[in-house]
Amino acid sequence: MAKTKFLVSRYDAARDTKPYLQEFRLEIPQGATLLDCINLIKWTQDGTLTYRMSCRSAICGSCSMKVNGHARLACKTQAADVVIDGAVTIEPMGNLPLIRDLAVDLEPFFDSIDRVKPYLVPDESRQWKREMLQSHDDYRKIEDASTCIMCASCWSDCNVLEVDPRFLGPAALAKAQRFVHDSRDSDTIGRIEFLSRVTGMWDCTHCAECATRCPTDAKPLFRIKELRTAAMTHKITNNNGARHVLAFRESVGGTVPGIGGGMLNENYIPVRSVGFFNLDGILSIIPVGVRMIIRGKNPPILPHIIDKFGEVRAMFRRFNDYRKEYRK
């Protein structure tokens, strides 16, 4: 079998001003994982190659790195599967300061977890002699999030973190979902309110990198969506993100008269989202509105009503029934 090119990112602050790719050549043994290959390189070609690993069974979360540009666990990846034109590129995770080679500083990641009060706040008024009871269905609501192994793959590839390091980030939000939906937790509302602030759940831009890179069932984007559903259900909507969703409901469902019918009212959305009485907010959306009017790009003033809108209206009239049925 031909040797594969491993292009591995190297960086040693004592020597290098910036990271560079070093080429190693290795014949991939039958069935070898990427971690097996990197270990072989370290152990037989260059002992100075630096990275983290421990369990080699996809449970400890140590070995995430960018493989051909995207974060994944080296130990959970069959090496042969990621060879492109005879080569694999291996780089450190993104959105974290570099320490050396493939090892990054994880403190910002773990700090993000810290910010969401990542522990159960039980109801102190109830005394349980034995375990607290939890139905199987309630357990299922938190099971996926609980599988997170803190590997930071999601954090590495999150698009919002690239432009805003203050964003809570996918793993912390998934962790938060695990408590918001835990039937044993007593701080549901407090948590949702906290998560509704800027840097929280509504700041996720839905790039879906996290859901794609996550090696477990935690899949943060889906948990973020569950958080937003919880916010809407608990009517914690005093923010642009949630109001944006309300604007959809009101114009598509026609639940506010004259606003729409079946389709989005694009004139209504921005005004509704920043809030009707938010002067600064309204002022901030004026320039784009003016630009669009100048070009004739502004949406029609009269909202568009689809044919057979009655069917859609009937659905929105049962809004709460749909919610109830979904929870079943």
């Binding site: 039980p122 034995r130 199987h136 357990y139």
Partner: peptide
């Protein structure tokens, strides 16, 4: 029991135990 009270996510039986 203490572990459960600390929030450990255990699988549950039909009675919720």
């Amino acid at each position: 029991t203490e572990m459960e009270h600390l929030g450990c996510v255990f699988s549950r039986d039909a009675e919720g135990r």
